[in-house]
Amino acid sequence: MAHNHAHPHDGNQKRLMAALLVTTLFMLAEVAGGLISGSLALLADAGHMLTDTAALLMALLAVKFAQRKPNARHTFGLLRLTTLAAFINAIALLVITVLIVWEALQRFFHPQAVTGGLMLVVAVAGLLANIFAFWLLHHGSEEKNLNVRAAALHVMGDLLGSVGAIIAAIVIMTTGWTPIDPILSLLVSLLVVRSGWKLLRESLHELLEGAPKAINVDKLKRELTQAIAEVRNVHHVHLWQVGEKPLLTLHVQVIPPYDHDGLLRQIHVWLHQHYQIAHATVQMEYQPCSGLDCELCETGAPHQQVEGTVLEHEHPHGAHSGHHH
């Protein structure tokens, strides 16, 4: 299974590398074009592409580090680096957008001449480059990789910026009205802020050990109780995510089973099939927890134990290794 798991990382790495090359080249082209033509829209797009270059580089490094095997010091490996990179990317995107908005406001008070023809040529070339880069990254995000989505979001901001620059160039060439340049820069920046803020919240949620939004904990507890006859109650559930892996610990009060290991394996298989949770720690109990809600910080009497030992098993007899990707 480890062999299959490596392919998405390899695909993401190649796409990130190609997108990084394309973005870097056209960032330099837009900087030059913006300075020569005097277009803020081009410079705004180049500013987004500058953060794209850093974002893609961090994403590439994060994907590379995430492939390192777990060790005694980092038992989950370095998967969390991808989320951290997405968080930094979101902050960088918001900061650069604020700077562009500030410059756009200054342009209203101090208009500058803009060369529409050169602006249009560079903007069209930038649009094509951004479309290509976004296509690369979009096709690399089937596994809902937050880090690749972060990089794709940066490129989407550039794509919108290129469209704005093209519109501004056409208006300037046909009417000579230069305020359209900072106006469109301002509108594009505001659109990107919305997406950047969403990404910031998502990555921060994961860094704070929040439960994956795709999994409803209450629904999981209810369905597990209904699906397996021996399960009386599911409680003390803790769900979080590392990289793309959802992780789960829970207590399960059960009717004393004829085949203890078989029931434990059945619970693991159900979690994997219905919620794609391949790494779970299940504590089986024959009596209710001593606390009202069985809280993590509980300091009262210990839980009722099975045969004198608290059972905290992964998949027994090789079942864990078969389901843990």
Rank of each mutant, 00 (worst) to 15 (best):
T281C: 06
I183D: 08
V234P: 04
Q276Y: 10
I100N: 04
Q106T: 11
L78A: 08
R15H: 06
H138A: 12
V31E: 00
R80C: 00
H313E: 13
L99K: 01
L199H: 05
H303I: 09
H268Q: 11
A2M: 14
H48N: 11
H74P: 06
V155N: 11
A2I: 14
H320E: 14
A46P: 00
A86Y: 12
A133C: 00
A125T: 03
V234T: 10
L184N: 05
K221E: 11
R15D: 00
A151D: 01
N145Y: 03
H323Y: 13
L191R: 00
H236E: 15
H138I: 10
T178W: 04
A85C: 14
M156N: 08
H5R: 12
V237K: 02
E206L: 15
A19G: 12
L105Q: 06
E307T: 10
D158E: 10
Q287R: 11
G322C: 06
A19Y: 05
V231I: 15
N216I: 07
V217A: 01
H315M: 13
V254A: 03
Q266S: 07
W240Q: 04
N216S: 15
E314L: 14
T281E: 09
D293W: 05
S37A: 06
T174G: 13
A129N: 03
A2C: 07
M27T: 09
L160E: 13
I91P: 04
R80F: 01
L204M: 14
G38A: 00
V306G: 05
A168T: 00
G161R: 01
D261W: 09
L271W: 04
H279P: 04
V95P: 01
A104M: 04
I88S: 08
W102M: 14
G116D: 06
A229H: 10
E142H: 13
H139E: 12
G116I: 02
H251V: 02
H236N: 15
L93M: 15
A29C: 03
Q304S: 13
N89D: 14
W270Y: 15
G161S: 00
Y275K: 07
G291H: 15
V234W: 12
A19P: 06
V310P: 06
A280T: 02
H48I: 01
M27I: 08
E230R: 13
T309H: 10
H48C: 02
L50R: 04
E142Y: 04
N71S: 11
T83L: 02
V310T: 10
Y286S: 10
Q226N: 15
L28G: 09
G262P: 07
H110C: 10
A168G: 03
F87L: 12
H260D: 03
I277N: 01
L20G: 06
I100R: 08
D261H: 08
L146M: 12
L60M: 08
A319T: 09
A123S: 02
M1C: 09
A86I: 14
P182Q: 04
L160N: 10
A278Y: 01
I277F: 04
A6I: 07
M156F: 12
H205P: 00
A46R: 07
Q112I: 09
G196E: 01
I100W: 08
T51K: 02
P316A: 03
W240M: 05
M156L: 15
F87V: 06
L28T: 13
E230I: 02
G300Q: 00
I100K: 05
D261M: 13
